[in-house]
Amino acid sequence: MGNVTVSIGGRSFTLASADGEEAHVARLGRLIDEKAGAAGVAGQTETRMLLFAALMLADELHELRNRPAPSPEAPTAPPVPAEVAERLGRIAAHVENLASLLESEAASA
């Protein structure tokens, strides 16, 4: 177990954390400190300051959870160069001509 000291609203709190999680806990502490600062509650009682920071974080989480899911877009193919499109058009026309010839031969047989 490791210990991490975080500063929230100008007050220091020492927390226990799992080994290897110290940096993560410190980042979370900074996030809470930012929320407390944004709420303008720095200097309030610890309980009130942490309550406001928690409410702001809960509001953000609520917004994220209730955001409409992005609509899945069909993957788009990269643009086909004009030269390739022209060549494919000629090939398609040739295949159609061959199909017509085969159909007419089958009809006359």
Rank of each mutant, 00 (worst) to 15 (best):
R90E: 06
P70T: 12
R30P: 09
G40H: 04
M56S: 05
L98I: 15
G43M: 10
P78L: 15
L28R: 12
V4R: 03
A93C: 02
G2I: 09
G10P: 13
G37P: 09
M1N: 14
A106S: 15
E63H: 02
R30D: 08
A106N: 06
H24Y: 06
N3F: 09
H94C: 15
A36M: 04
E34M: 04
A18T: 12
G2L: 10
A74Q: 15
V95W: 10
A74I: 15
L31T: 04
G37D: 05
V25R: 00
A18E: 14
E86Q: 13
T14P: 02
A26K: 07
D59Y: 01
A85K: 07
P78D: 14
H24M: 07
L55M: 13
N97L: 03
V95H: 08
L61G: 04
I8L: 07
S17Q: 11
V41G: 01
P75D: 14
S17H: 15
N66L: 06
D19Y: 07
A77P: 15
I91K: 15
E105P: 07
S104I: 11
H24C: 08
E96L: 08
I91T: 14
V41S: 00
P68W: 01
S71E: 15
L51W: 00
E96H: 08
L15Q: 01
G9C: 12
R90Y: 03
G9P: 12
E103L: 14
G10D: 02
G20A: 05
M1T: 13
R11N: 01
R90S: 12
R48T: 00
E34Y: 06
E46A: 06
L51V: 01
T47S: 08
Q44T: 13
E86M: 06
A38F: 05
A69P: 14
A69W: 07
A16V: 04
G9N: 03
S108T: 08
T14K: 00
G2C: 12
S12H: 13
H62N: 12
L98E: 03
V41M: 00
V95Y: 14
R67G: 06
A23F: 02
A74S: 14
M49H: 04
T45K: 02
A107H: 03
V25N: 00
I32E: 00
S104F: 03
A54S: 03
R30G: 03
S71V: 07
V41E: 00
E96Q: 10
A99S: 03
P70F: 02
V41C: 04
V6A: 07
G29N: 07
L64E: 09
S104V: 09
A82M: 13
E34T: 12
